[in-house]
Amino acid sequence: MSLDLSRIRAITLDLDDTLWPIWPTIARAEVVLQNWLGAHAPATQALCQQPGVLRAIREQVHHECPDLLHDMSALRRESIRRALLRAGDDPALAQDAFEAFFAERQRVELFADALPALEYLSSRFPVVALSNGNADVQRVGLGRYFYASVSAREVGVAKPDVRIFQRGAQAAGVPAQQVLHIGDDAHLDGVGGLQAGMQVAWLNRAGHDWAHAPHAPHLTVADLGALCACLAKDG
Rank of each mutant, 00 (worst) to 15 (best):
A46N: 12
A46F: 06
A46W: 08
A46D: 14
L47E: 09
C48M: 13
C48A: 13
Q49S: 15
Q49W: 09
Q49F: 00
Q50G: 10
G52T: 07
G52W: 01
G52M: 08
V53Q: 13
A56D: 11
R58L: 09
E59M: 05
Q60G: 08
Q60S: 13
V61M: 02
V61P: 04
V61Y: 00
V61W: 01
H62Y: 10
H62G: 12
E64K: 03
C65Q: 14
C65N: 11
C65P: 06
P66R: 01
P66N: 04
P66I: 01
L68P: 02
D71W: 04
D71Q: 00
D71A: 02
M72D: 08
M72Y: 06
M72G: 04
S73Q: 00
A74K: 01
L75T: 02
L75E: 00
R76V: 05
R77C: 11
E78S: 03
S79D: 01
I80E: 04
R81L: 08
A83L: 14
L84H: 10
L85M: 10
R86V: 12
A87W: 02
A87D: 11
G88L: 11
D89N: 14
D89A: 15
D90R: 11
D90H: 04
D90P: 06
D90T: 10
P91G: 13
A92C: 11
A92Q: 10
L93H: 09
A94R: 15
A94H: 14
Q95A: 14
Q95M: 13
D96E: 08
A97V: 15
A97G: 15
F98D: 11
E99I: 10
A100H: 02
F101Y: 15
F101T: 15
F101I: 14
F102A: 15
F102H: 12
E104Y: 05
Q106T: 10
R107W: 07
R107V: 09
V108Y: 02
E109R: 07
E109T: 12
L110R: 00
L110G: 04
F111A: 00
F111C: 02
A112S: 10
A112D: 15
D113L: 06
D113A: 05
A114Y: 00
P116E: 05
P116G: 04
A117D: 03
A117S: 08
L118D: 01
E119K: 12
Y120G: 01
S122F: 04
S122L: 01
S123C: 13
S123M: 12
R124I: 13
R124Y: 07
R124T: 11
R124P: 12
P126M: 14
P126L: 13
V128Y: 09
V128S: 15
A129Q: 09
A129P: 07
L130A: 14
S131V: 08
S131I: 06
N134V: 02
N134C: 07
N134G: 09
A135P: 04
A135G: 13
A135R: 08
